[in-house]
Design a protein around this nucleic acid. Structure first.
Length: 595
RNA sequence: GGGGGCGUAGCUUAGUCCGGCUUAAAGCGUCAGAUUGUCGAUCUGAAGAUCGUGGGUCCGAAUCCCAUCGCCCUCGCCA
């Protein structure tokens, strides 16, 4: 039997039609002479009815026997007539709920063993079990909707970019290891024993070479690989919508990206995004929110009180400022009622991000209530109130110390409080561009400069002259797109001058032979007429997780890995036969016995 | 590498602090039977558990101790 309709398609407009449906037996409700089966496919559920009276059969009729033998998740093909449900028995929860199919022919296409877990919206199954049985888990409509949304987003991105003249070009998955950023996944080469390919962390160099080759506007929905520890929002392989263009500038890249996101949100969620997205500089973002990816769905901005409070009689603040630190605070509005344990929780939360402590002040009608209030005279208290727009009933929280720690811990506190205080609306997406990043950050451990973004990012033109004497003051032409506190895309205008590219490598303390060995091919490419170019790469997995309100990107990846990088379904990674290793010239290190 | 949480029938959990009325309990699912308007169907009955694994303490361990494995969150890491 060939299906004529899907299980989500038939409505009262189809009443009277003959139809053939194929799908899975979602549930069976057996009333003896009357059997209902919910037939499910990815489009929906249609109730089919096997009625003894209707077909003039008896309990032992073949049709009835087949219906009785059906179990959960059997694959069925049914032929029958679309009929209205008797008045009062309509199911308003499903789109096909006004009709049912009276079965005249019923075929079990394939049986199913009893399931390891129910496909039901009413039970939460542990992720472990779900991933081990992903073939069943992926039948859950909730997951199917997420993957189908992912498809619509990819298609919208492709269609948009195609319309704008971008060409999708594939780049290698087996490529050259260019460590410097994340750890590479390595693949041993059989034909060159002892040598390795690396899986790309991104198609960065290839897309730049495509620009050099004149492809002008490139994109690729590209798999990227990084061998680092996993998180809820980090998988060892992930997908980017990788974009690069020549003869371009920030403005053009922003507008292309904004147009693409407009189409993506329309196609994925039916939402109309307002463009252009607001912009703020790195400096402003860190100043106001403590982070370069602020969640701008709510306020609660940080205030810098370093100069105001360094004179207070409070030793901890004083010492922190003398050591080159800063003092910043935020106003947890309306939280003066927090108990000591609640505040202790906030303190230990901040401690996770390195904060040595949390100074707090409850604003009451009699002034500040805090164990350390006595160290802050009324003038200082007035300044604190003013800078944080505090009113009675508020709770003021301060962290002092190294700027990085103060900003990071307060930014995290702000996010936590934003959630806890219900300042965040559901289904709201607030976009912002963060621009004007510094080009370098200092690496204390290795006593050298590191690239803030990556070494192919162009410095601000006016800062090129600063590179020699004061690299730390140089700005970059990098930009991030942030949505609801998540970095959702990152990019830059690139370096197209081979001499400048070499200089950047030198600043990050790469030696001439290292540069040659790792990036020689790329510098050579830049030397043959490289056009100015730049691009951006939205992370698809995080974007879909955000759009589907998923806790983890594992929910928007069909076959994700666990925290140890394992695939519970296939059992990867796994041992391989010695023969395979031998061919690759690889020897196992004998396990050293313990004791 | 560090911190935290979890692991008990196929699934979801209770029991674990404070060892013994536990013959390890329940709901869902499964299996058998009944059932003509259900849609998380219902009713009757049944089967189903190395309490993650290994070791130890004890008269006695799901429960206490040690080790180990797995999963999740997180710091570091992720140009």
């Amino acid at each position: 039997m060939k299906r004529t309709h899907t299980c989500g398609q038939l409505t009262k407009n189809d009443i009277g039609k003959e139809t053939t449906l194929c799908g899975w037996a979602h549930s069976r409700r057996d009333h003896g002479g009357l059997i209902f089966i919910d037939l499910r496919d990815r489009y929906g559920i249609t109730q089919i009815v096997i009625n003894l009276q209707g077909v003039g059969g008896e309990h032992c009729s073949p049709l009835h026997q087949i219906a009785e033998s059906i179990r959960s998740e059997y694959v069925l093909a049914v032929r029958g007539k679309v009929e209205p449900r008797p008045a009062g028995t309509e199911n308003k929860k499903i789109t096909t709920g006004e009709i049912e199919v009276a079965v005249s022919e019923l075929q079990i296409v394939n049986a199913s063993k009893a399931l390891p877990f129910e496909i039901s919206e009413y039970v939460t199954i542990s992720e472990d079990t779900r991933l081990e049985n992903r073939f069943i888990d992926l039948r859950r409509p909730e997951i199917q909707q997420k993957l189908l949304l992912r498809h619509r987003v990819c298609k919208a991105a492709r269609d948009f970019l195609d319309k704008k003249g971008f060409a999708e070009i594939e780049t290698p998955v087996l490529t050259k290891s260019t460590p410097e950023g994340a750890r590479d996944f390595l693949v041993p080469s059989r034909l060159s024993p002892g040598e390795f390919y690396a899986l790309p962390q991104s198609p960065q160099l290839f897309k730049q070479i495509l620009m050099i080759s004149g492809f002008d506007k490139y994109f690729q929905i590209a798999k990227c690989f990084r061998d680092e520890d996993l998180r809820a929002d980090r998988q060892p392989e992930f997908t980017q919508i990788d974009i690069e263009m020549s003869f371009t500038d920030e403005e053009e890249i922003f507008s292309v990206t904004e147009g693409m996101f407009k189409d993506i949100f329309k196609a994925g969620l039916g939402l109309d995004l307002k463009t252009p997205f607001p912009r703020l500089s790195y400096k402003e973002a860190v100043g106001r929110f403590g982070t370069d990816k602020p969640d701008m769905r709510f306020g609660m901005e940080l205030a810098d009180l370093t100069d105001d409070l360094k004179s207070a009689e409070f030793k901890i603040f004083k010492q922190a400022v003398e050591a080159g630190g800063i003092i910043k605070g935020l106003n947890a509005s309306g939280c003066a009622g927090y108990s000591r344990p609640q505040i202790d929780n906030l303190t230990s939360f901040a401690a996770v991000y390195g904060a040595a402590g949390l100074a707090w002040f409850k604003v009451t009608k009699d002034g500040f209530d805090s164990p350390i209030a006595k160290f802050f005279n009324s003038d200082l208290q007035a300044v604190m109130r003013k800078k944080l727009s505090a009113k009675e009933g508020d709770l003021l929280l301060f962290v002092c110390g190294k700027p990085k720690i103060v900003n990071e811990s307060l930014a995290q506190l702000r996010n936590l409080l934003g959630k806890e205080l219900g300042l965040i609306k559901k289904n709201e997406f607030v976009f912002e561009w963060v621009t004007d990043f510094p080009l370098f950050k200092y690496n204390d451990e290795e006593k050298r400069w590191d690239c803030e973004h990556h070494p192919f990012t162009a410095p601000k033109e006016e800062d090129v002259s600063k590179l020699d004497k004061d690299p730390g003051s140089a700005g970059s032409r990098a930009y991030d797109l942030v949505v609801n506190g998540s970095e959702i895309a990152s990019g830059s205008i690139r370096i197209h001058d081979p001499k400048l590219q070499k200089k950047i490598f030198e600043i990050i303390k790469m030696t001439e032979p290292e540069i040659e060995a790792r990036f020689g091919f790329f510098i050579r490419a830049l030397s043959y007429g490289a056009p100015p170019h730049g691009g951006i790469a939205p992370g698809l997995d995080r974007l879909i997780a955000l759009m589907t309100d998923s806790e983890s990107i594992r929910d928007v990846i069909a076959f994700p890995k666990t925290q140890k990088g394992a695939c519970p379904l296939t059992g990867a990674p796994s041992d391989v036969p010695d023969k395979q290793l031998k061919e690759l010239g690889i020897k196992k290190i004998n396990e050293v016995p313990r004791h």
